[in-house]
């Protein structure tokens, strides 16, 4: 699938947002990803869909290495070879009465698309996000535009509550949570909250379509591929000793 870049620019420290054309079709579940070919790099880069517009997709990516740095050099109008949307996303139908969106760093983007999908179903989520410092905070205006005021925690206290988002979120009451972020945050969420939970995982990937078994993890239901059976898993599936 060849997509055209509509916009590509920085939105926070080392974080960029890219808008791509979206081919006609159903919006589908949020939380899935595009597998993007980056010029000069051999393997594709998996990046979550942050927003599904009528005829566009937004992705939000952090420049952590050469591939994501090269993505910043792609200008408006450039064509991008992408596969997707791939994987099994967040199912808004499983939200229960009062869901919480729990995000950490560049784990926040797919929760924005999930927030949209929940609101379209008439479900109003709460949100709690953690960042290292205020300079890393992303997409807050986008959530506010949807009428959601996220609870913020930063490690240095430069924005919102000081400390871990999983501690800050203990003040909230909710029936289920949808989480995406670094693995320590996900583990802490499982420790802290007994509620129904769906978590989006990350592994290094090659094919992204379920063929190479490069991304397999052991679950309580046997081996599963993060790219095809995930990236979103129900907490009962995860075999993490937390």
């Amino acid at each position: 699938m060849i997509l055209t870049i509509l916009e590509n620019g920085p939105i926070a420290k080392d974080v960029w947002r890219m808008r791509l054309t979206r081919p006609a079709g159903e919006k589908g579940l949020p939380g899935r990803f595009l597998h993007i070919r980056v010029p000069g790099k051999y393997l594709r880069r998996p990046i979550s869909i942050a927003w599904t517009g009528e005829d566009s997709w937004d992705i939000v990516y952090k420049t952590v290495g050469e591939g994501t740095r090269r993505m910043t050099a792609l200008p408006k109008g450039a064509r991008v070879d992408a596969l997707g949307p791939l994987g099994n996303g967040f199912d808004p139908a499983k939200a229960g009465g009062a869901p919480l969106l729990l995000g950490g760093g560049v784990g926040v983007p797919p929760l924005l698309d999930l927030c949209r999908a929940l609101l379209e179903k008439g479900v109003r989520p709460q949100a709690a996000f953690g960042f290292n410092t205020a300079a890393d905070a992303i997409l807050l205006a986008d959530f506010r535009a949807l009428g959601i005021e996220p609870l913020i925690a930063t490690m240095d206290g430069s924005l919102g509550i000081r400390g871990f988002v999983t501690d800050a979120a203990k003040a909230l009451s909710f029936d289920s949570f949808f989480a995406c972020g670094p693995e320590p945050m996900l583990r802490s969420a499982l420790r802290s909250f007994p509620q129904t939970g769906y978590l989006s995982l990350e592994t290094r990937m090659a094919c992204g379509i379920g063929a190479c078994l490069g991304c397999t993890i052991e679950t309580n239901e046997g081996p599963k591929r993060v790219c095809k059976d995930g990236p979103v898993f129900a907490r009962e599936e995860l075999r993490w000793s937390i």
């Binding site: 790099k41 393997l43 592994t203 990937m205 078994l213 490069g214 397999t216 993890i217």
Partner: peptide, 23 residues
């Protein structure tokens, strides 16, 4: 066979490494 623990994939110049471990 369950294969090897994660990570199993690494990129290289013009190629890739895999340690799927015959899952």
């Amino acid at each position: 066979r369950l294969g090897n623990p994660q990570p199993r994939i690494a990129e290289t110049p013009c190629g890739m490494l895999n340690s799927v471990g015959l899952e």
